[in-house]
């Protein structure tokens, strides 16, 4: 029995060693020393996730270490972001989709956040802006947002599918109602895909969503885009006029998709990441994929992105205050 025990002990020792050393082989030499974890605080299959995977695919061309997309969904993005905030600031854990609702909208609605989305992370680069595009059913008589508003002004009830209450799309709809004085009933769904499906079935008059969410329906003619709520035209839908062009003074930043790292990450690491992401954004194949998934490339480097985030957060704060949205 004691021999048996010795053998098992030996076996244990060897196995532990094997297990331990299989993950070894990187030290703190030159950044990046090991694969980089790209934390997506949303579920797999969503538009942020698709973007992350598109970046991951192109990233390997420009960096010696691969990226690994890890989804940590929950609490509208707060859980994943908190994980990155708490992780080691060595540039091996990146936050993806920085600038989404949980960074720009939620702080102005929610009393407490477990971190400060502007101060506890350092912006690295902006990749894309997911604007809000307002659509109507392809079978309807409307061609522009103005038509819809004129129809609503006659006393018809405008119902709108939005992805979630007090989200980016809901805010746009409420802002349109406020600025035009025509009431819009927003009907929240759980997520953009569900909202788009309901509009496709003709159960509502208008709907809003990010271009990547509604692209299949725009292509098939089931949806007709009537306006983009951005201060300029969206790169992925260059033919769709903005709401401002139609005389409706509504423009938001939609949902911004950038990359960030925890506070305290060395500046040279941030610089490296920002420069490499720039190469990714200029990559031909990357641009091609971005066009098919309906996401515009809107690169900004670390400095400009940081300044942009401050402005975008203030814009949202002002708008939410003006609309009086409270939970």
């Amino acid at each position: 029995m004691s021999r048996m025990r010795r053998v098992t002990l030996l076996l244990t020792g060897v196995s532990v060693a094997v297990l331990v050393f299989s993950g070894w082989g990187f030290s703190a030499e030159k950044y990046p020393a090991k694969p980089i974890q790209l934390i997506v605080p949303y579920a797999p299959g969503g538009s942020s996730d698709v973007l992350a995977r598109t970046v991951e695919k192109a990233w390997t061309k420009y960096s010696p270490q691969p990226m690994i997309v890890v989804n940590k969904a929950g609490a509208g993005g707060v859980l994943g972001t908190e994980y990155v905030v708490r992780s080691k600031p060595d540039g091996h854990t990146l936050l993806f989709a920085y600038g989404s609702g949980c960074d720009l909208v939620m702080p102005h609605l929610q009393q407490k956040m477990p971190y400060d989305p502007l101060k506890d992370v350092v912006p690295v680069a902006r990749i894309s802006i997911h604007s809000v595009v307002v659509s109507v059913s392809g079978k309807s008589q409307f061609n522009t947002m103005k038509d819809v508003i004129a129809w609503g002004a006659k006393g018809n009830k405008i119902t709108s599918a939005v992805s979630t209450a007090a989200g980016a799309v809901d805010i746009v709809m409420r802002a349109i109602a406020k600025r035009t004085g025509v009431p819009i009933t927003t009907v929240p769904f759980s997520g953009g895909a569900e909202a788009a499906t309901a509009l496709a079935g003709g159960h509502l008059v208008i709907g809003g969503g990010h271009p990547s969410e509604v692209l299949p329906h725009l292509k098939s003619g089931r949806f007709r885009p009537v306006g983009v709520a951005l201060d300029r035209r969206d790169g992925s839908l260059p033919n769709v006029p903005t709401l401002k062009e139609q005389g409706i003074d509504v423009a938001t930043w939609g949902s911004v998709k950038g990359v960030a790292v925890p506070k305290g990450t060395p500046p040279e690491v941030v610089e490296y990441l920002s420069a490499t992401l720039k190469k990714v954004c200029e990559d031909g194949e990357f641009k091609k994929t971005m066009a098919t998934i309906g996401q515009p490339v809107d690169y900004l480097d670390q400095k400009d992105f940081a300044a942009f985030m401050l402005k975008a957060s203030k814009d949202y704060a002002d708008l939410i205050k003006e609309l009086g949205i409270k939970l």
Binding site: V50, R53, K57, L215, P216, K219, S220, T289, T292, I293
Partner: peptide, 9 residues
């Protein structure tokens, strides 16, 4: 979508 194919009609 990532493969460059839009599902739909």
């Amino acid at each position: 979508m990532i493969q460059g194919i839009t599902p739909g009609p």
